[in-house]
């Protein structure tokens, strides 16, 4: 019996170590000098650890600036997605108006539109608005999430009617009910949506690639992808850059692991 449970644990553990090994290799490579990084047989840990690659990254890329860009764009988009979704979700869940179902169907339908399909007309639209190579052009198409509206509607539908009616008797208007009752009760859903939208904006690649050209406006993934050339790539330096980019996300993940996996699950099952 005992032996069996041990064997059961061994396989997933070895598998987990293998699965995480690429991350270990990334950090290890980033600390090796150019000769050792390409050495055969490969060394597991750097024999002569060096921070030279990190120095090179900071010389080639304006890392603080890139981080700030990514943080600013992500934070703004998350804020906009949360507020637009909460407002609309409240209207669909708690307000009574003509055409409600038809309008909600439009939201549901847009959930099925793949971004890759509308990228060409979206680019043309941004060009006509004069928003190419600008943060407005980058962020505007991401400011609304139909999935977010759907999620917030679900959350707000679950609010007991008695709470709302008590507030109405106290003379509260819709806006007051939204702020004082609906929003506080929907914090778990708002948090899940915040995590999901942050991840998708922080990691976004195709749209930034299409719309942003100036190096000083680039987000982290875009600048990283420009680091490697066709033939001569300084891999230890690239690994130093990716390590720097992974660390903050890994820390956030360690702290919020349960919430993050839970929100991915929500997105998977409802989206």
């Amino acid at each position: 019996m005992n032996r069996k449970t041990n064997g059961f644990k061994l396989f997933p553990t070895i598998f987990g170590i293998l699965l995480l090994f690429p991350f270990f290799w990334m950090v290890s490579s980033s600390l090796k000098n150019g000769v050792e990084a390409f050495a055969t047989p490969p060394t597991l840990l750097p024999k002569h650890p060096t921070l030279e690659n990190y120095r090179n990254v900071f010389q080639i890329l304006d890392m603080p600036r890139l981080f700030l860009n990514s943080i600013a764009v992500s934070a703004t988009v998350v804020f906009l997605q949360l507020s637009t979704s909460a407002f609309a979700g409240f209207a669909f869940a708690r307000l009574n108006f003509r055409g409600k179902n038809a309008i909600f169907m439009v939201y549901l339908a847009t959930m099925m539109i793949p971004f890759q399909v509308i990228i060409v007309p979206l680019f043309i639209e941004m060009r006509q608005l004069g928003l190419i190579d600008s943060y407005l052009g980058l962020g505007l198409p991401m400011m609304v999430s139909a999935f977010g509206v759907f999620l917030m509607r679900q959350a707000m539908l679950a609010i007991p009617r008695e709470l709302e009616e008590a507030a109405i008797i106290d003379g509260a208007g819709s806006f007051r009910i939204f702020i004082a009752i609906a929003l506080p009760l929907c914090i778990p859903s708002l948090a899940a949506l915040a995590i999901l939208s942050f991840m998708s904006v922080w990691n976004a690649y195709l749209w930034p690639l299409v719309i942003i050209f100036s190096p000083e406006k680039m987000t982290l993934p875009l600048a990283l992808s420009n680091l490697h050339g066709e033939n001569l790539t300084d891999w230890p330096m690239v690994m130093a850059a990716t390590t720097l980019a992974v660390i903050p996300i890994a820390i956030v993940y360690l702290v919020l692991q349960r919430q993050i996996t839970q929100s991915f699950l929500t997105a998977g099952l409802k989206g």
Binding site: S83, A88, I113, I118, P141
Partner: peptide
């Protein structure tokens, strides 16, 4: 009228950046 105020901030961008491009 209230619903309009709540929905417009998402519906207008939704039209501009999803429906019209589609």
């Amino acid at each position: 009228r209230t619903a309009l105020l709540f929905i417009a901030p998402s519906f207008i961008p939704l039209l501009m950046f999803f429906v019209i491009p589609m």
